[in-house]
Design a protein around this nucleic acid. Sequence first.
DNA 1: CTCCATTTCCTAGCGCTGCTAGATATAGGA
DNA 2: TCCTATATCTAGCAGCGCTAGGAAATGGAG
Lengths: 190, 190
Amino acid sequence: MSTQARRERERAEREQAIITAARDLALAEGWDAVTTRRLAAEIEYSQPVLYSHFKGKDAIMAAVAVEGFAELADALTTARASAANARQAVADVAAAYVAFAEQRPAIYDAMFTLAVDLPFATQDVPTDLARGFAELAETVRPVAGDHDLETFTETFWSGLHGLVTLMRSNRLRRPGHDRRLAVLVDRFSR
Amino acid sequence: MSTQARRERERAEREQAIITAARDLALAEGWDAVTTRRLAAEIEYSQPVLYSHFKGKDAIMAAVAVEGFAELADALTTARASAANARQAVADVAAAYVAFAEQRPAIYDAMFTLAVDLPFATQDVPTDLARGFAELAETVRPVAGDHDLETFTETFWSGLHGLVTLMRSNRLRRPGHDRRLAVLVDRFSR
DNA sequence: CTCCATTTCCTAGCGCTGCTAGATATAGGA
DNA sequence: TCCTATATCTAGCAGCGCTAGGAAATGGAG
């Protein structure tokens, strides 16, 4: 009976290999370079094997995004935990968010720009996404004033997301990035 | 000599027909449905003709984006002009921005999400984009306080852009959209 | 150990994409 | 009327995501 266990384990390992290969390739060369043929070559199996693990390329990108949500949540937690005070926490968490997006642009895209539908249908994503959101909410709670916390958090989040995406698509001048972030933090922590 | 003039005119008309066809098709069915073959069929010419007008599909999308920048600038100008006072102007312009993005999602994507490089290399885009940006800047000038106006404007813009994009990709709850916009306006016009 | 059934995997190919080379038709000037 | 130059089309390339159908490997029964 252990042979079946071994098979399942190997299968799980192969699935993780696909996700990792997609992630690495996307980070190195962008999502355009992530083709099913290259992924198959990377894991040293043929193309159709991918489809026995994932419904399609979108599902693979969604899986990468799921990992990303967990990483982002961790980064935000770390930033908030090490902040000296509440106001500084807002600045630190904002900086951590932006740093995450800049260091892993392809993953950030998979999380927030591409693969629109799939991930949010599953169970995993809401968990880690909600964790990250909760971390943001706790960070801004002391400065939210009379505003509804959830709405306030979402708006702050949108500000961060807008900065990140406009910056990355060259709609904003590269210098001034820090100053814009400072303005945003100032506006949301007065 | 007038035959040459006629030819140039017809050529310009055909170029505009391509842009309009791309725009309409993108609005109706999304950019995925805009293929060079469908565009060619729409203008009743063969595929290669597209390439005598534009370098490639990206350039066609960029041309659509250019038109979009002009429309957006107009919408912002109208909104600001009809506002009762400075504070109301911020709210009205913000609402106009969001409305533009929601009513023409495909065009907004071409302007700010896709077609990253091409448009900003040409001359036209900076003009109309700068016009829209200037409109935003004049709107928030009375409420910018001590902040550098350009930085302040960019940050406000990022907030709007973040709201729009996260909303559209279902990362934010559909209800609460107005409240989030209200929070943003409040933060940037206290 | 052999045979069969089942699962696993690959080869080959479909219809589509953006894009282009080379042939063809059209038009203007001598 | 013929020649040249421009305008346009037909046909095709290489690549994409994805899948049907057959081959290979595997595990259990006799």
